[in-house]
């Protein structure tokens, strides 16, 4: 996007959830990598001050010299703090401070920071902390768009509903939704909320359906995004989210039931599920 004065204007997109542990950091890392793979200039920002995480998920933890708080407090310039991805030169990380408390940054500082980043990048993805307090408010302060991640569980959906209200009150426009950790086998048995159930309850636009997938565990162990793994259903789902974010119409594929070791084992004996 181009401002009238010719200045480059990237999109600032915050990934948030309310409840912790539902997949914000996983989504940010994979979506950022996917957008860069698709040719965008991308920076992912870890706004979870005090609980630095995005660096290890992306395998960049050994390269950190300066962090976000160093930048806003003027100890480092933005360029010094940005860490370039191992494989993709157009992908950068701005790490969170690990030793500072979550109130080390103000909303104005975040707005200023995202304003600088959007001049250099096409996509500025912000990994939000859990909760509805300052950390969350800072994370959405400079955002143009908000993506809400939820799992198909009662508590996560409830918190997502609360967050939707807060995002709308902050006049960020209607957020879009990623439903993460879907287990098709449980959904088919009527033992897990379906994506349709969640959408009916939250009534926001769907942008991604990500299955619960063992490859997320293995790729996180390696510090590589799952989008590199062609065997990964979750990786493919994140690639689709990136394409939708860029305005492409991508149909939602039907998820395959994944079998764990135990099921495969029992499968030999022809055990049937009701």
């Amino acid at each position: 996007m181009q401002r009238s004065n010719g200045e480059h204007m990237g999109r600032v997109i915050t990934i948030t959830s309310g409840k912790g542990g539902v997949g914000k950091t996983t989504t940010t890392a994979n979506l950022g990598t996917a957008l860069a793979l698709q040719g965008g200039r991308v920076v992912v920002v870890d706004a979870d001050i005090g609980l630095r995480n995005l660096d290890v998920v992306m395998g960049l933890e050994n390269r950190i010299v300066y962090d976000l708080v160093d930048v806003v407090e003027g100890r480092a310039r933005l360029r010094q703090a940005l860490i370039r991805d191992k494989r993709l030169p157009e992908l950068c990380l701005l790490p969170a401070a690990q030793t500072r408390d979550k109130d080390a940054v103000s909303r104005e500082q975040m707005i200023d920071l995202t304003g600088q980043l959007r001049r250099e990048f096409d996509f500025v993805l912000i990994d939000s902390p859990a909760g509805i307090e300052n950390g969350f408010r800072n994370a959405i302060a400079g955002a143009d768009e908000v993506i809400i991640v939820t799992t198909p569980e009662v508590s996560a959906v409830r918190d997502a509903d609360r967050i939707i209200g807060l995002v709308e009150a902050a006049e960020k426009g209607p957020p879009s939704l990623v439903v993460n950790r879907i287990k098709p086998r449980l959904v088919n048995r009527g033992e897990m909320l379906s994506v349709e159930d969640v959408l009916e309850l939250l009534a926001i636009t769907l942008i991604g359906i990500v299955p619960d997938d063992e490859t997320i565990v293995t790729s996180t162990n390696r510090g590589e995004a799952a989008v590199y793994d062609h065997q990964s259903q979750a990786g493919r789902a994140f690639l689709d989210v990136a394409r939708r974010l860029r305005g492409e119409e991508v149909p939602f594929p039907v998820l395959q039931e994944q079998q764990g070791m135990l099921e495969r084992f029992f499968g030999i004996f022809g055990r049937r599920r009701s």
Partner: peptide, 12 residues
């Protein structure tokens, strides 16, 4: 009867 419908009803 299924837990998903129960979850949905409780959420509503």
């Amino acid at each position: 009867d299924r837990s998903a419908s129960l979850a949905k009803q409780r959420l509503m």
